[in-house]
Design a protein around this nucleic acid. Structure first.
Lengths: 199, 199
DNA sequence: GAATATTCCTAGGACCCCTAGGTTTTTCCT
DNA sequence: AGGAAAAACCTAGGGGTCCTAGGAATATTC
C-alpha cells in the first residue's frame, strides 16, 4: 500500500523534457507529456518548475552546458586549425545528436536570471571560443568580431541543415569541410582596418 | 440587419497571422487570436486554412516571398561587393522589420507541397544568391559551397542577434560591417582545392 | 513518536484546436 | 428578376493544454 514516490526534482524534470524534445521535437514538449513520461500528474511538476516557459529555459541551459562540455573536451590540447575543426565538429555533432535540446538554445530566451547566473555553460562557451581563436593572434575589436562570425556561421549552418535548408544536390558534409577551410583562411588573413574610415 | 461579411480569404488570414507574429511573436499566433483580430469566430478560419500548422507554413512562404523581393530590389543593378552588401543588408533589415515572419522561415517546414510549388520565393532566392556571387567567378562545386556559407552566416548572425546572443560590449552593427568585409575578402580568395586530398 | 516539511494528488477554470452541422449572404443561371 | 447553388460565417461541443488551490500521503527532523 506504500505509494512509492517518483523522486522528482527540477533537474529530473528538465532531463525528461530534454529527452522528449530530442525524440518528438521541442514544440511537442508539454507539461502533460513530460508528466506522462515520468508517471506523474501534470500538476505535480509545478512544485519543481515554474511554468512551461521556465522548463524550456532550463532545457536551453542544460543544452548550453552539455554543448560547452563537448567542445571543451574536443578542443583540449589542440591549437590552430586543429582546434578550429574540432570545435566546429563538436558543435555540429551536438546539434545532430540532440536536435530538440539544440533548438531550445535558439529560442529568444526569457530565463530566470538566478538560474542563468548559476549555469556556467554560456560564459564558459565564450571563453572557449576566445581561447580557441588565440592562435590567430587577432587584436580587439577584431577578435570579438571573429568570435561572433564563428558563432554565426556554425549556428547558421547547423540550423539550416536541421531545417532541411540544403537541397540534396551536394552533400552537406562536403560543404561543411570547405566552409571550415574557408573560415580558417579567413581568420589567418583577417582584413584589419585602420580605425579611420576614408569617407 | 445586413450582417456584413468579413471578406476572408486564405491570403487575408495569412496576412493577419503574419502581422500578429511580428507584434507578439510567432509562438503566440493562435487560431483564436487571428480570429479575434479579424472580428470572426475561430471556427470560421478553417474554411480558408487547414490548421494552425498550415497557417504557420503559409506565413513562412509569405515571408520567404517578401524577403526575396526586398533582396532583389536591393541588389538590382549592383555587382561585386556592392551587391554583397546590399544583399546582406536587405536580409538583415527584413529580419528586423518582421521578426515574427522571419522566425516563421526557420521552422522545420512541413508545408503543403502544392502551396510550395506555387510560391516562387524560395526558388527565386537561390537564383538571386547565385547571380549575386557570379562576380567572384567561382566554379562548381565551390559556388554551391559559397552560397551555403553566405546563407549560413547571414541567417546565423540575424538569428543570434534577434535572440539577444550578442552581449552589449560592442555594437552588433560594427561587427556586421566587419563580417561583410570578411566575407567579401573570403569570396575573392576562396581556397580552391585540388580534388585529391594529400592524406 | 510527534511535528513539520515535502511530495504528489484531485478538482476545476480558462483557453486552445478542430469537427459537425445549421443559417445567412452572395453568386450564378435561365 | 427569381430561384438554385455555392460560399461565408455561425453555434455547439469534445478533447487537450496550462496552471492554481487546496487536500492527502509520505519523508524528515527534533
Amino acid at each position: 500500500m506504500h505509494m512509492v514516490r517518483a523522486g522528482l526534482t527540477a533537474d529530473r524534470v528538465t532531463l525528461a523534457g530534454a529527452e522528449l524534445a530530442d525524440e518528438v521535437g521541442l514544440e511537442h514538449v508539454t507539461m502533460s507529456a513530460v508528466a506522462r513520461r515520468l508517471g506523474v500528474k501534470d500538476a505535480s511538476l509545478y512544485a519543481h518548475v515554474r511554468s512551461l516557459e521556465d522548463l524550456r529555459g532550463r532545457i536551453a541551459l542544460l543544452a548550453a552546458d552539455e554543448k560547452t562540455i563537448r567542445i571543451a573536451e574536443a578542443t583540449a590540447g589542440r591549437a590552430g586549425k586543429d582546434a578550429l575543426v574540432a570545435y566546429a565538429n563538436a558543435w555540429r555533432q551536438y546539434a545532430h545528436d540532440h536536435p530538440g535540446r539544440y533548438t531550445a538554445t535558439q529560442i529568444p530566451i526569457q530565463i530566470d536570471p538566478e538560474l542563468v547566473a548559476r549555469a556556467a555553460g554560456p560564459r564558459r562557451a565564450v571563453e572557449l571560443t576566445y581561447s580557441m581563436l588565440r592562435a590567430y593572434a587577432l587584436q580587439e575589436p577584431d577578435l570579438t568580431d571573429a568570435v561572433r562570425l564563428m558563432r554565426s556561421t556554425l549556428h547558421g549552418f547547423t540550423s539550416l541543415e536541421a531545417a532541411g535548408g540544403f537541397a540534396h544536390a551536394r552533400p552537406a558534409e562536403d560543404t561543411w569541410v570547405r566552409c571550415l577551410d574557408a573560415l580558417h583562411t579567413l581568420l589567418e588573413h583577417w582584413p584589419t582596418h585602420d580605425e579611420g574610415d576614408s569617407t
